[in-house]
Write a protein that binds this DNA or RNA. Sequence first.
DNA 1: TATCATTGTGTAAGCGATTTCAACGACAGG
DNA 2: CCTGTCGTTGAAATCGCTTACACAATGATA
Lengths: 326, 326
Amino acid sequence: MVKMKDVAELAGVSSAAVSRYLNGGYISADKAARIKQAIELTGYVRSSQARALRTGSTKLIGVIVPKINSESVSRITAGIGQVLGHRGYQMLLANTDNAPDRELEYLDLFQNHPVDGIVLVATMITDEHRAAIASCHVPIVLIGQNVEGAACVYHDDFEAAFELGHALAGRVDGKIAYIGVTEEDRAAGYDRRRGFEAGLGAAGVVLDPELIRRGSFTLDSGYRASRELLGEVPDVSFIACATDTMAAGALRAIDEVRGMGEGIHRVSGFGDNAFLRALTGGIPTVHYGYLTSGVEATNMLLNTLDGVEGESGLKTLKLGHQLMNV
Amino acid sequence: MVKMKDVAELAGVSSAAVSRYLNGGYISADKAARIKQAIELTGYVRSSQARALRTGSTKLIGVIVPKINSESVSRITAGIGQVLGHRGYQMLLANTDNAPDRELEYLDLFQNHPVDGIVLVATMITDEHRAAIASCHVPIVLIGQNVEGAACVYHDDFEAAFELGHALAGRVDGKIAYIGVTEEDRAAGYDRRRGFEAGLGAAGVVLDPELIRRGSFTLDSGYRASRELLGEVPDVSFIACATDTMAAGALRAIDEVRGMGEGIHRVSGFGDNAFLRALTGGIPTVHYGYLTSGVEATNMLLNTLDGVEGESGLKTLKLGHQLMNV
DNA sequence: TATCATTGTGTAAGCGATTTCAACGACAGG
DNA sequence: CCTGTCGTTGAAATCGCTTACACAATGATA
């Protein structure tokens, strides 16, 4: 592998000159030309490892996600990747498979090590998480949760759920059920459930605690919870779910129990999944700018890292949402 | 940041001893104990950058994908990530957004630089690709295409499509149409289209060239191609698509033109998308072990890198498939 | 003419690990 | 007692790059 010294010798300069040429330091025009030629001739590329050791910067951003094969996460990731690519960084992806302790593990691994910054697509935030985030040696931005004391890019799940609940209250007659997710996930669990209840409440509809069930983000869990619900409470009229994926499961359950095509007007979700939209013509749901959240979070992070002027660095950013099909 | 020298001093040994302790070289029991204690006391973690510079190995695997927010790719990626995690490697993810030249770019970037190996989730393989792969300095495994002279983990798209075509020929009456993707994608474009035609042919059904259209992997393109098709040839009876995602678009188009629920029995796809399966009860499609292909490819790659005995290293592996709902 | 920025340049000192090398004590065999 | 082997050790040489520093020119300013 050709190294800087080789290039320097070929160009008849010192390796310091080559380094300066590469990094934009003082260099005379003729030497610059000779170096340029020497680099092209040898096909030299500088060792990012040596550079990293010397400068302490790797141009790598650690991205921690709970699950890669999910529409929302992969959209967020697409947004992150877009920005990183544009700005000369690369993405080190860590998938925790929904295990919050693996999040901590990666947080630990990353901060000591090879990354310049971290984007955490967050689900459950425990005290341990807060501690880990606070003691992080590199800048970190969270996506999806609003955590005090950390830079966050998030959506207002309470408000969105409120609006959805309020809108649905007027349109649905009969019993409304809600299938949520773990409330340890503040945004998708707690806020959505509470917001939805509050929204219904504001329209004078009470959500019967008996009709609140719990799933786990998967289509299958939405399906199972719905079957159970329909079995126990046959006259349920509408099933609201905490995610579109779960809503797809609910849809399937209703179709099975009540006949094909029955489910479409009897479920709602969150996330505005493209597949679901196309196949059903659109159930009531909330559109979040997932890609945008990835973009915004990453820009914020890189602005601090690159010391971009005019940008106030890490802060908390609430993105908007949009009610669909209500 | 505490470094090896600090640990060594605290333990009263040389840094060489600490390094040996960490890497399993000669070390006496008592020194090992002292070093262990010193490490715990200081919370020392070794700099992977310095290590990388010295050893030339980064424990990083470059993963190049055409698109991150797609079910098949994210499943493959999940499989890759699983294995990497288990075996102490990390994933450097590069998303090319379906731009084959960005694939080349990353191939170039990766091979000279910080990764120990590459997994390429391949779509179009041009001669440039072949050249880049052949001249790659680090081991590389392709997923999804069978390329002569490269290690590949792939599915037999021709055979799968043949079986699907053959099975459908007996079940469908009336005109069958096919919406494919670019034939530069040998597996998903060329092989599927040809296999499907051959399968129909073997059952005595001819696929009218007028009824072969072209889309681009997206739901929307499947929708548009189908609308066009239905407009031009109103008596089309069945639309086979090159991917489930496109089939979802076709489904929507048929529902729009002929009434809700009509599409379900009139489309087929490839890939066995979970959402589509749940929402439709299952259209004819082919199930591929996407996660498995990620797992197998990565194991193969790491086996060569780690020099695992008994494994014959990089080779080409054809995975099975399964016809669904026919 | 003396003084001082300004611009270029090379030398050499690291960054923090791994690894070669020579050396050393102990102990067994001859 | 000498020699060879084994297990163990630290000093020192890298790995390839960046950058502080010293030192020249050169031209501008007083």
